[in-house]
Design a protein around this nucleic acid. Sequence first.
DNA 1: CTGTTTGTACGATACCCATCGTAGTACGGC
DNA 2: GCCGTACTACGATGGGTATCGTACAAACAG
Lengths: 129, 129
Amino acid sequence: MRVSVDEAAPRETTVATAAAHTSRELAHPDRAEIRLENVLHALSDPMRLLIVRDLARTDDELACSAFELPVSKSTTTHHFRVLRESGVIVQVYRGTAKKSALRSDDLEELFPGLLEAVLAAAEAQAARD
Amino acid sequence: MRVSVDEAAPRETTVATAAAHTSRELAHPDRAEIRLENVLHALSDPMRLLIVRDLARTDDELACSAFELPVSKSTTTHHFRVLRESGVIVQVYRGTAKKSALRSDDLEELFPGLLEAVLAAAEAQAARD
DNA sequence: CTGTTTGTACGATACCCATCGTAGTACGGC
DNA sequence: GCCGTACTACGATGGGTATCGTACAAACAG
């Protein structure tokens, strides 16, 4: 499943008429605002790399609680925010849960092959350890 | 030109017999010690990305003074050290100069396609700006 | 030997960031 | 309305880091 940022976080012009709208908005950068430095920085943390690998493996949206990270919940929230604000993931509230998914399409359009190469590198390194 | 870390920084077993040996050694991580997180972090700084792009463009070793960075010399030294210690570049003294080159072979072996994807992404973003 | 070029070392500074705990909010089920 | 689940907000804290200036060291050309 591929989620674009516009689908997940509707613009102000398309609010509240559909029934599926649940609650708060989450700030996402537009595709054109995504910066390579920020993406690389987001991916340079082991915890965030773990999250991204999990998201890539399922190829579907996951709740934050689906991740078993060796850090506290506050820290987990922090990492998800960094990933979202750098443009690596989309997040949307669904009831009490908050679902996350990779912005694969946006990243592929901006930086072809980058996400794939990073994911492959992460898997290769994990296999070596 | 491709420089391997062993060629540039000879081990203790092979010192000082050849005439080409000039001066101080510089610490480089072995290929197996290079970590993806460190590489991504090294590449996530705009100044360092500039350096890496320059190195990739010439495909040859460059002196630190060949770079026109909008920061002080001390800061430049700092960035080169981060790149070297993360395994992205090799550095070797040649007279008063200190030459740097990408560790393309080591990186390609560890993380296939990663460096290429990052460089292409950096060029694409620079073209957009 | 002296001066120039090139890069380093060191200390300071200001900022960023990964982590935590605690307290709180939002939503859905009962 | 009330409770449990899921996530957030806030403040604190310790460590990292990008930046600078100044002073120093190593090599080469005279």
